[in-house]
Design a protein around this nucleic acid. Structure first.
Length: 938
RNA sequence: GGGCGGUUAGCUCAGCUGGGAGAGCGCAGCCCUUACAAGGCUGAUGUCACAGGUUCGAUCCCUGUACCGCCUACCA
């Protein structure tokens, strides 16, 4: 068996992933004795393809999953995808439009069939990509938010909430996306500052001689104005309150009202009030009992109530028309540039339109209160906890959650309306149809309309039956009492009459809110649910804290009577190296799979983990990935070295107390114990970067740089018991390091586990060793050795003495242990310091003309004769002395300060004194030698 | 408008309970020393944004300022 010259990830990654999956290692281990550990993956959108955020998210979860397996816990990492209602529908609609089709033309059933087909074809892409980066999910439990089980859970939850009155229907203003043709929740609106204009429009007073000028950014909505508002204490307008103005272009009369929400300093201090198209105005309207007139329809065009002249025009075309018309009437007083925040659809970036519609809502008040308690009482910990404030603030201000969407792809709302039953007041249902979209209808004026109310339909000479029979209905809303059901309804349970199902589907986030328990089999009382709920930790980005995390907490508490997870680790956004958000439009997107292709999945994962410092955005830099690839290569090469001694490896484990162990071995075992503790502690605290660094540091700068190097003289020597012990120790530490690294870099560790250590089972089935102990004695002794070696190396480096020149060293020390350490490890020391020989002891005299280095309890002298001129050594020492003197001055200032001596803790003062003494000693030696050299030079 | 976070080496960032600051990359010098040049050894580089305050002592705690970023909000 032999290892290649350098590590090539492409040779082994697929092989091992297949091996893990084939052997079912990702499934919870029934033999595991530790407590269960479970994570549900934040389900990526089926439309998604793996981006850096996913990669970071999945890597951290995989680190936790693999680490917990190695700790002997019964681990479940449950994967799945989200149907992503609007996003997926948009994708398929775009596809359709390429074929010159649209969803209305092919109809609901055919459209949904088409989406499923799309899902079958492309929906698995992100799963495949997750596997590429090594995600150890239990794929046998993979779920989809629209699969049968989850759909059942959704219906169950909807019905129960409905029955408890926590789900209700209401007519109010909502954010509407005219392009997606659907309502959006408050969260789904993104605000962006845009340059707009403020238009000043004159509204004539009843007397015809005077005007009230209002300022607005949206002139087109004036067609739906039902009042003009001024501040009650505004002297300019007080006399108009209660009078009427005539609304231009419509001929309607609307009242002037007084309301404190008006800011007299903005615009003209007079505000047009359009309750049907502005959230503020809606509130004002309610306070003053104003009528709401909807003039914009669901497709973003003007509706029939906008009047013949404007109906059918796009809202922005209408704005232009209205402004022109006003100008013609000399009612446009002026316009001014104005920058303001405008809401956009988070899926398609279209400017949203506040519309008055009937929608389904979840009453969030009590749910949110309990969700707040769970976090406040620490039944759920947010990590880092700085997110708690955000969470509390948002939850306190939470508004009822609009859950209905006027799209087709999603969980259809389990509500039916009877066409025959009469409502409580005896009105037949048919007359209560609220709103309908239909094929465009040409108006006499030449414009076309696409939607309207039932009453408006009749004005167009169309009956409801016409439209239903011609399958032209896109969308219906009714305002009668609905029947909510867990099963499909064929007919009305009250009168047996025909039923129409609510055409809406639920917000995608409704089903994902149930994810932690719906995926485990709820509402059945499954074994999985019992073992794995509540899940241990949720790993997610802060961007979906409210969309998803908060709602899972509410639903989990409501339906499971327990929190959905104990900890929420909230990681940052992955940005590019300049700190910019990655986006397709900026062209700064880094594809994770390009990274894995270039550097290997292990290096990529290790980088992500090492970037994941808490509370900060991740700036991704490819250079660092490259650095970690070097790290893997280092591991690989160390393996090659160790492999050389395989024949002499007896497989015995190394223990600190073993008397045959040399100093280096005792030391590295102690450092191993330390590194292991650090790594475990760091992962426990979700300090992934620190965990990664502690192993990195140990493997490279302790194991490779010191241990392997200092073992060489022994390894190159005769076959003694000591040599055998070193080899066993090399293998022993190596094995432990592989385990420590495995959560971060599963592929290369698995490969080495088998090829180096002849293991027949996966590294995943091994467990961390609890029996590692620190050996302070060895660490202290090794410290002396390291001091001596670096002292000599430092002189060599500073004076540019070639490594090929073997030096002679005289080391004076009064400490017997230092003396014995150097003597006992003489060959090691000579080899590492590249000395041909050395003397050590208390009686050593400093040779003439030697370089000096003073360390802890040691004075190291290197005779310079024949090596180089002493001038550079003098310069070096002068620099050194100056440095020491400034340090001494600083500490001395402290020690002279009575306040410090009296107030600082004893140990701090003692420490400073010791530091000072050491500095004095070193400085003296250096100065002495300096004097000496100067005399020689002369 | 309100809230949160950031400002540390040339670059990217650590620095968890105050005791003269670290890593990686980069840079400089010397080395192909039989695991590794994707390497080894050595070295240089910081008014820890600015101004006050608390303290014997502040990168760390408090107040304010500047700049950057994020979240949130009904200024039409």
């Amino acid at each position: 068996m032999e290892l290649k010259k350098s590590y090539s990830p492409e040779d082994i990654e697929d092989k091992w992933y297949e091996y893990w999956e084939r052997n079912g290692y990702f499934k919870p281990d029934d033999n595991a004795e530790g407590a269960p550990f479970s994570i549900v993956i934040p389900p990526p959108n089926v439309t998604g393809s793996l981006h850096m955020g996913h990669a970071l998210n999945a890597t951290l979860q995989d680190v936790l999953a693999r680490w917990n397996r190695l700790r002997g816990r019964k681990v479940l990492w449950l994967p799945g995808t989200d149907h992503a209602g609007i996003a997926t529908q948009n994708v398929v609609e775009r596809e359709l439009s390429k074929d010159g089709l649209d969803r209305h033309r092919i109809g609901r059933d055919a459209f949904i069939e088409r989406v499923w087909k799309w899902k079958a074809e492309y929906g698995g892409r992100i799963i495949h990509q997750l596997k590429k980066i090594g995600a150890s999910c239990d794929w046998s439990r993979e779920r989809f938010t629209l699969d049968d089980g989850l759909s059942r859970a959704v219906r169950e939850v909807f019905v129960r909430l409905f029955e408890e009155g926590l789900i209700y229907r209401d007519s109010r203003l909502i954010n509407w996306c005219p392009r997606c043709h659907t309502a959006l929740s408050d969260l789904e609106v993104e605000y962006e500052e845009l340059d707009g204009k403020l238009y000043y429009i004159k509204y004539p007073l009843g007397d015809g001689a005077h005007f009230l000028t209002v300022a607005t950014t949206r002139p087109e909505t004036m067609l739906g104005d039902t009042a003009v508002a001024v501040h009650p204490e505004d002297e300019r307008y007080r006399r108009f309150v209660g009078k009427d103005v005539s609304l231009p272009l419509t001929g309607r009369s609307i009242p002037v009202i007084a309301d404190v929400m008006v800011d007299p300093t903005f615009g003209t201090g007079a505000v047009k009030v359009t309750p049907a198209h502005d959230f503020n105005d809606e509130a004002t309207g309610k306070r003053h009992n104003l009528q709401s007139i909807s003039v914009i329809a669901e497709d973003g065009r003007m509706g029939l109530d906008a009047g013949e002249r404007y109906a059918g025009l796009d809202r922005y075309a209408c704005r232009k028309q209205v402004l022109e018309d006003l100008k013609a009437l000399d009612l446009l007083e002026g316009e001014k540039k104005h920058r303001h925040a405008v809401g956009h659809c988070y899926r398609c970036k279209t400017i949203i339109e506040p519309l008055l519609t009937i929608q389904w809502y979840v009453r969030t008040e009590t749910l949110a209160a309990e969700a707040v308690d769970a976090v406040r009482e620490k039944r759920i910990s947010l990590v880092p906890d700085s997110w708690e404030n955000n969470y509390f603030a948002w939850m306190r201000e939470i508004r009822d959650w609009c859950i209905s969407r006027q799209i087709w792809w999603g969980h259809r709302i389990p509500v039916w309306y009877c066409t025959d039953c009469k409502t409580a007041d005896g009105t037949p249902n048919g007359s209560l149809i609220e709103h309908i979209f239909f094929e465009p209808v040409k108006l006499s004026g030449g414009n076309t309309v696409h939607s309207g109310t039932y009453a408006e339909l009749r004005t167009l000479g169309l009956s409801r039956k016409d439209i239903i029979d011609n399958s032209k209905i896109v969308h219906i809303h009714r305002s009668v009492s609905p029947v909510c059901s867990r099963a499909d309804l064929e007919s009305c349970p009250h009168c047996g009459g025909d039923v129409i199902r609510d055409p809406d589907v639920l917000d995608t986030w409704f089903s994902s809110a149930l994810w932690p328990f719906s995926t485990l089999g709820w509402p059945e009382k499954t074994a999985d649910l019992k073992i794995f709920y509540p899940t241990s930790v949720l790993v997610t980005g802060f961007d979906i804290l409210f969309f998803w995390v908060a709602r899972m907490i509410m639903m989990g508490l409501k339906f499971m009577d327990d929190v959905p997870f104990r900890d929420v680790y909230i990681h940052a956004l992955v940005r590019d190296a300049k700190g910019q958000k990655m986006s397709k439009s900026k062209g700064n997107v880094i594809d994770p799979l390009v990274m894995t292709g270039k550097y290997g999945a292990d290096a990529f994962r290790f980088s992500l983990a090492a970037f994941a410092a808490q509370g900060r955005d991740v700036r991704f830099s490819e250079e660092r990935v490259e650095g970690y690839r070097h790290f893997i290569n280092k591991l690989w090469n160390a393996s090659k070295f160790i492999l050389t001694y395989k024949k002499s490896w007896t497989g015995r484990s190394a223990a600190v107390g073993d008397p045959v162990l040399d100093l280096g071995s005792r030391w590295i075992l102690s450092r191993l114990a330390q590194a292991t503790d650090e790594m475990h502690r760091n992962i426990e605290n979700f300090r992934f970067n620190d965990a990664a660094n502690s192993v990195y540091q140990f493997l490279w700068h302790e194991f490779c740089d010191w241990y392997i190097e200092m073992s060489k003289p022994i390894l190159y020597g005769e076959e003694t018991a000591e040599r055998e012990a070193v080899i066993n120790c090399l293998y022993f530490v190596f094995e432990k390091v592989l385990q420590l690294l495995h959560p971060f870099m599963p592929f290369v560790t698995e490969e080495l586990w088998h090829s180096m250590l002849d293991k027949d089972k996966s590294i995943m089935l091994s467990h961390y060793d609890a029996g590692l102990v620190r050996d302070f004695d060895a660490e202290q002794k090794m410290g002396h050795l390291i001091d001596a070696v670096t002292g000599i190396r430092s002189i060599r480096g500073e004076l540019n003495i070639s490594p090929s020149v073997e030096l002679h060293a005289d080391i004076k020390t009064m400490q017997v242990d230092v003396e014995s350490i150097l003597k006992d490890n003489g060959e090691t020391f000579r080899k590492m310091a590249r000395c041909k020989d050395f003397n050590v002891g208390p009686a050593i005299k400093k040779p003439k003309g030697s370089a000096v280095s003073v360390r802890n309890g040691m004075e190291i002298y290197i005779p310079m004769e024949g090596l180089l001129d002493v001038v550079s050594e003098i310069a070096r020492l002068e620099k050194e002395v100056a440095k020491l003197e400034s340090s001494m001055a600083f500490i001395n200032k402290k020690l002279q300060n009575d306040d410090f001596i009296n107030n600082a803790p004893r140990d701090v003062v003692d420490k400073e004194r010791a530091k000072f003494d050491d500095l004095v000693q070193r400085e003296q030696k250096m100065a002495e030698n300096l004097t000496l050299l100067r005399s020689i030079d002369r």
